[in-house]
Computed example of a mutant assay.
Amino acid sequence: MIGTARLAANLKWLFTELPFEQRFEAAAAAGFTAVEYPDPYPYPVATLRRWLADAGLTQVLINSPMGGPGEVGTACLPERRAEFRAGLALGLGYAVELGASFLHVPAGKRPAHLSRDRAFACYVANIAWAAQQSRDSGVRIVLEAQNKRDAPGFLLDDQAHAAAAVEAVGADHVGLLFDVYHAHQDEPDLLAALTEFLPLTSHVQIADVPGRGEPGTGDIPWPAVFEALRAHEGWIGCEYRPHSPDGLGWTRQETR
């Protein structure tokens, strides 16, 4: 099993029966010591810092702004470069003020009129610029592949594609966000992919498949996954929709 001290509660997915501001205390009461969430921007950074401090929690990760309603990033869209840069500056400012280790920069969906090569080149150029902006900030930029069923058209649609972006940028503070839930649905061999790409991985997120529940509610071989993750020393984000009211109950029992 994985040590609970390394787990971060994703407050978009956990404790959703509560208003957002109450999820911090709920996470601490459940045994979490850290949190992540994609969208801090509706709240003043000083307010978020107070909620973190009052609950005794560490901020691990936020996303850069996603764009308009229903969008999942603008970084691969050449005509949105100015918007991307403004959003990246906002996200980086929030990450620094919150003490977050990671800023996830989502690639976005590629429209039909835009070739994959051009979209990828735009994404790499934007991430290289983001890497320059964040170099002395203490914040690492992370890139995530998303599965084709949940995010059709998402530019980074497998781990190799995301890894290629990391390697093309070539900055030591840019790495992968390896999401076990997404990888299990698109990789021919989850464990082989995890082993191959873990050296490039800065952050990990977990959920089971199907149903996006906590480990042990689906068919992912968690003992083998957690054994592979022994080589990962960083945080593991719990980005799942719990099937049990106890967000960490699965850590106290074996998962298949």
Rank of each mutant, 00 (worst) to 15 (best):
L61M: 15
W222H: 09
D208H: 06
V105W: 00
A46P: 01
L229M: 12
S202H: 09
H184K: 09
G247A: 15
G93H: 09
G73W: 00
F120E: 15
Y41Q: 10
Q159K: 08
F32W: 03
L77Q: 11
V166T: 06
H243R: 14
V225H: 02
E239G: 13
L98C: 11
L190Q: 06
F20G: 11
Y181I: 11
G170K: 04
A5R: 13
R212K: 09
L92F: 03
T58E: 12
Y43N: 13
P245M: 05
T217H: 05
D157W: 04
D136N: 15
A121P: 02
A53I: 08
W13F: 08
A46V: 13
S64A: 15
G68P: 02
A9L: 00
P188W: 05
W250T: 15
R241E: 15
A95N: 07
N126T: 12
V166R: 01
G73V: 04
H113G: 12
G234I: 11
R256Y: 07
G175F: 02
D189Q: 09
D208Y: 04
H203S: 07
P223G: 14
A82R: 14
Y41P: 03
R110D: 12
L248A: 14
M66R: 13
R80F: 03
A5E: 15
A151R: 10
G87Q: 02
E25W: 01
Q132L: 09
T4S: 08
P210D: 14
L103H: 05
A27D: 05
G56Q: 08
E214W: 09
F178L: 04
E25S: 12
K12P: 00
F32P: 10
M1K: 06
G70E: 05
V60A: 05
A130R: 04
G153R: 04
A168I: 09
R230C: 12
L177W: 00
C238W: 05
E36M: 06
A86F: 01
G237D: 02
A207N: 07
A145I: 02
R252C: 14
L88K: 07
G234C: 13
I127K: 00
R140I: 09
A29S: 13
V180N: 01
D117G: 14
A75W: 01
V209N: 12
R50T: 15
A130Q: 05
A231L: 13
E17K: 06
R140C: 11
L156E: 01
Y41I: 12
R49E: 13
D136I: 14
T251Q: 10
P38Q: 12
L92R: 04
L114R: 07
N147T: 07
A86P: 00
K12E: 14
W51K: 08
L200Y: 03
V209H: 04
P210E: 14
T58D: 10
A29Y: 01
V166Q: 01
A82M: 08
